[in-house]
Amino acid sequence: MIEVEHLHKTFEVRQGGLWRRTVRRHEAVRDLSFRVGAGEIVGYLGPNGAGKSTTIKVLTGLLVPDGGEVWVGGLVPWRDRRRHVARLGAVFGQRTTLWWDLPVRDSLDLLRHVYRVPAPRFRENLRAFTELLELGPFLQTPARALSLGQRMRADLAAALLHDPQLLFLDEPTVGLDVVAKERIREFVRHINAERGVTVLLTTHDLGDVERLARRVMIIDHGRLLYDGGLGQLQARYGSARELVVDFEVAPDQADVPGLELLEVQGVRARYAFSGAAAGPIAQVTAAAPVRDLTVREPDIEATVRRIYEGGLLQGALGQGA
């Protein structure tokens, strides 16, 4: 669906005062290459200023790169923009495609005409999205009167009315409560599984990545530093897994050979371990009677934070899946 080869984009940044100014060249994207297959959901991660937005703007045809090649669905975005934009959808958390003073239903109807969606297909998509996203209670409400969660659900419907092959999601759950976030994530999973929509997801909410993407790409200073599975990222750069054990009685000695004891509070003990859980569980249950135990996986947010702060991916280019 997406092919990017040696993409390069530089901006000129003007600095200085009224009488004397200098021009500095900022490389937003440097020699960036990756591919996204049809039907994938890929998390595209990086700190602010890493080059994510520049990449998305090139992929949508809003920017022309200085060098490299880009194909999206076989088209070069900025050369065949009319056909290209007809095949993609986009939802940006801080912007809306709805008309501010119109009821949601009227905005969706206007978009039907913009994208030339046949009336029967429009009605079917509107029915399906109204059910999946629970749009019914606010279809007749002006966009300006919607809550943030309602607006995001309406924007998702608007982005998908014309059956795009590719969906760009930029911070789709920013500012939403837990229930609203899960509703949107479930909808994205549905349109990916049932309609085969390819999704490129940029977000700072790593809960979105954990629940939606099996593959992540991490970019920083305009370069792709990691491209691979989320599990591989955790295994390579994440902290250890944890085994939380509730013993029948508070142990006199909670140490277990081969496990790192992190904490003991009454009958509960926490151990760190790596690899499969079967061995550590067997060791703990053999040491003393156990009431309950839980395996905690490494926190993806903590993993990515360690990567950014510690530069753990420097030199790891090309070592993903």
Rank of each mutant, 00 (worst) to 15 (best):
S53K: 01
R95C: 02
P65W: 07
R21Y: 05
D101W: 07
V117P: 00
K57A: 01
V295A: 04
V178S: 06
I281H: 10
G229Y: 02
L212N: 02
F187P: 03
S107F: 14
P137Y: 15
E12N: 00
L156F: 05
V104Y: 07
Q165I: 00
E186K: 07
G67P: 15
V70D: 01
V91Y: 03
L108I: 10
S107K: 15
L110G: 02
H8L: 13
A302F: 08
L201A: 08
P77C: 06
A282P: 09
D252P: 04
K52V: 11
W19L: 13
V295C: 13
E263N: 11
D31S: 03
W71N: 05
L169D: 06
G51R: 00
F187S: 06
E69P: 12
R223K: 10
L132Y: 08
A250W: 14
Q15M: 04
A154Q: 06
V58W: 02
D109K: 14
E210A: 07
P103K: 08
G266M: 10
G311R: 14
E263M: 03
G67R: 10
R127N: 01
S53N: 08
D292T: 00
R223P: 01
A254V: 11
L259S: 05
D255P: 04
Q314P: 00
E69D: 15
R291Y: 04
Q253K: 11
A302T: 10
I184H: 02
L59I: 12
D292A: 14
G37K: 12
Q314F: 06
I41C: 11
L201D: 05
P298H: 06
R83G: 15
Q253M: 12
G46M: 06
L102Q: 12
R195L: 05
R215W: 14
E248P: 01
L169Q: 05
R116A: 14
L45W: 03
R189N: 00
E260S: 11
V179A: 07
P47T: 09
E309A: 15
D246H: 10
Q150E: 13
E69H: 14
E12F: 00
R79G: 04
P47I: 10
S274A: 13
L224P: 04
L259T: 10
E12I: 03
V72E: 04
Q15E: 14
R268T: 14
P289F: 06
W100F: 12
V29E: 10
G238F: 01
G258Q: 10
W19Y: 10
V70K: 03
P280G: 08
G16I: 09
A250I: 00
L206W: 00
